[in-house]
C-alpha cells in the first residue's frame, strides 16, 4: 500500500511558542490512525497545518502524490482531505440539510466529473444530504438550524459535513468528546464502516477505548513533538508515553 499522506518535518510557531517541531507522519491508503497526546500537545495545530487552515513554517505536506504547500484550505478539501473541527463550527443561519449541502456544491460537484468521480445531480442533492444526516443520526432535525442542536449533535453535524465532501482522508478531531457510551459505539461503527468503503481515517481522540478500538496504528504527540508511532498496544505501554500522560 502506498502512502496517501506524508508529513515531513512540519514545524509551526505562534510567536515564541513552538507548537510543532519536526513532525514526520506517514499515513497509508486505507489505514486507520489514531493521534493522541495531552491537551496543548499540538494535535489540532497539526490538523490545521495538514488542512491548510494554518500555514506550517517548515516542512512539507504531501497528499496523494502532490505537495500541498501553498494551497488554500478549499483546494485541499477538493483534493480529498476533509476534517471536522474540534469546536463545532456550523453554518448558523442555515438548516442542517443546507449545512451538508455546501460541501456537496463546492467540493463534490466542483471536482472534475469523470471515471471514479460522479457529480450529484441537482435534484438528488437534497436526498443525499438527508442520507448523510441519517448516517450520523440527525434525520429528525434535518430541517432545524444548528442552534437547536446539543453540543453532541453539533459534533455529529461536523462529521456529516466532512463526509459530504466524499474525502479520501477523513480527519475526525475529537468528534466523540462528551458522547455517551452507546453514542461512542455508534461513531466507532461509522468510522469503521467509512474505512471499509476505502476512506482513510485519522482520529484524534481522548477516549482511549475508542482510540484502541479504531486505530490500527497510534501516533503520540507531546509538546509539539512526536514521541511514539506504531502498534497501539505497544505504544500505550511505551514508558515515554506513560510518563507524558501520568507524570513521573
Amino acid at each position: 500500500m502506498s502512502a496517501l499522506l506524508t508529513v515531513e518535518g512540519v514545524g509551526k510557531r505562534f510567536g515564541g511558542f513552538v507548537a510543532l517541531e519536526g513532525i514526520d507522519l506517514e499515513v497509508k491508503q486505507g489505514e486507520r490512525i489514531g493521534l493522541i497526546g495531552p491537551n496543548g500537545s499540538g494535535k489540532s495545530t497539526l490538523v490545521n497545518c495538514i488542512c491548510g487552515t494554518l500555514r506550517n513554517e517548515t516542512g512539507k505536506v504531501r497528499f496523494a502524490g502532490e505537495t500541498l504547500d501553498g494551497l488554500a484550505a478549499h483546494e485541499r478539501t477538493r483534493r480529498g482531505l476533509a476534517r471536522s473541527f474540534q469546536l463545532p463550527r456550523p453554518f448558523g443561519s442555515l438548516t442542517l440539510v443546507e449545512n451538508v449541502r455546501i460541501p456537496i456544491l463546492y467540493t463534490v460537484n466542483a471536482r472534475k466529473a469523470g471515471p471514479g468521480h460522479t457529480h450529484v445531480p441537482h435534484d438528488a442533492i437534497d436526498a443525499r444530504c438527508r442520507d448523510l444526516l441519517g448516517e450520523v443520526g440527525l434525520s429528525a432535525k434535518a430541517d432545524r438550524q444548528p442552534r437547536d442542536l446539543t453540543q453532541i449533535e453539533m459534533r455529529k453535524l461536523e462529521l456529516a459535513r466532512a463526509m459530504a465532501a466524499e474525502p479520501k482522508l477523513l480527519i475526525a478531531d475529537e468528534v466523540m468528546a462528551g458522547l455517551s457510551h452507546a453514542e461512542v459505539d455508534e461513531i466507532i461503527a461509522l468510522l469503521i464502516r467509512l474505512n471499509g468503503q476505502g476512506i482513510t481515517v485519522i482520529m484524534i481522540e481522548h477516549i482511549m477505548r475508542a482510540v484502541m478500538e479504531v486505530s490500527q496504528r497510534l501516533a503520540v504527540l507531546v509538546a509539539g513533538r512526536k514521541i511514539a508511532d506504531g502498534d497501539p498496544r505497544e505504544v500505550v505501554r511505551n514508558p515515554e508515553v506513560v510518563r507524558a500522560y501520568l507524570g513521573e
Binding site: 478549499h74 463550527r89 442555515l94 455546501i102 463546492y106 467540493t107 466542483a110 459535513r161 465532501a165
Partner: peptide, 22 residues
Amino acid sequence: SLGYGFAAIRDDEAAAEAAGVP
C-alpha cells in the same frame, strides 16, 4: 450555489473553506 457559498462565508469563513468554498 453562489448564494449558499455567500451564506457559508457569512456564518463561518474557516468552516466554509474546509467545506471547499473558495
